[in-house]
Amino acid sequence: MPQVEIPKDSWSGSVTTVTLGATAADGGTRSHTITVGGHKALPFMHFEQKMAHRPLIALEIKDHRPDDWSPLLLDLWGDAANDPASWAKAAESAGADALVLWLSQNGTDGKPTTPQAAVASTKAVLQASGLPLLVFAPGQAELDNALLVPISEATTGERLVLGICEDKNYRTIAATAMANGHLISTRTPMDVNLAKQLNILVRDMGIPPDRILMDPTTGGLGYGIEYGYSVMERLRLAALQGDGNTQSPMIVTPGAEAWKTKEAKVGHDVPATWGEWLERAINWETLTAMALVESGADIIVLRHPESMRRLRAAIDELMSVPA
């Protein structure tokens, strides 16, 4: 029988290894740390290089009960969603690898979230759960600066991930992360060049590569995921080819992306051809996530524990290739 010579790519570059969270030994309070990145080949190409660190799944929680979330999610989390500490506990026991505390734009009183409230929510989550924590501000440059700087200062040494660092506010967020021993998550809108550019800008600030995660923004299934998918493939290829400004591990938010689509969010007055609501919503979230896992995601932020369970099973399979 002829022997087929299997072509192996050899790459000059690799993805940076990034550790989230700090235990007491390293000046933090986390019960353990998690590490992502370190790849020297495309995702799950173990026959070339055993994948250094598996993709991890974080669950998203909010600082207060989010009125705009799908009832499917709110019913599922129930009373736990009423305050961030109980939600953090529930998410930890659901099996999350890490938590994302995504701050709301407004407090329950309808006024913009105050720095004091944001710091309090963050501290409550840190006390309730030992998981590594990512804190995302609402995504408006000025408000984000106002919330993230005090959070960063109040949690020095925890090795939190501070987001969202965009081209409009990178100076402030990168500076406070460096000063207080945190990481940053950069975000750019579905474009390889913009992702690289922001990476260059924050690196120009002097923040070390092992403190940067990048969120290339992906779009959800049916709503532009093909852009995000290809942007991630291109970024990962560039990273392996040695482009130092694309080598950050990638964090993606398919939970938020999927659950804002009508397909996942809404159960009434939709076409019968869409099928049963809950299962459709979970498929929407897991398929969005799965596509992103295939294209190189390192941290996947989800909203539904069942989606997490299914995706984790898939990642288990992808990580263990029988000889």
């Binding site: 998918y229 051809t273 099928g275 049963e276 609501w277 459709r280 398929l287």
Partner: peptide, 15 residues
């Protein structure tokens, strides 16, 4: 099952 087939068809369209 439409709730599985629909998202798969959309994914195929997207990719």
């Amino acid at each position: 099952a439409p709730e599985m087939v629909y998202p798969l068809l959309v994914l195929r369209e997207n990719i």
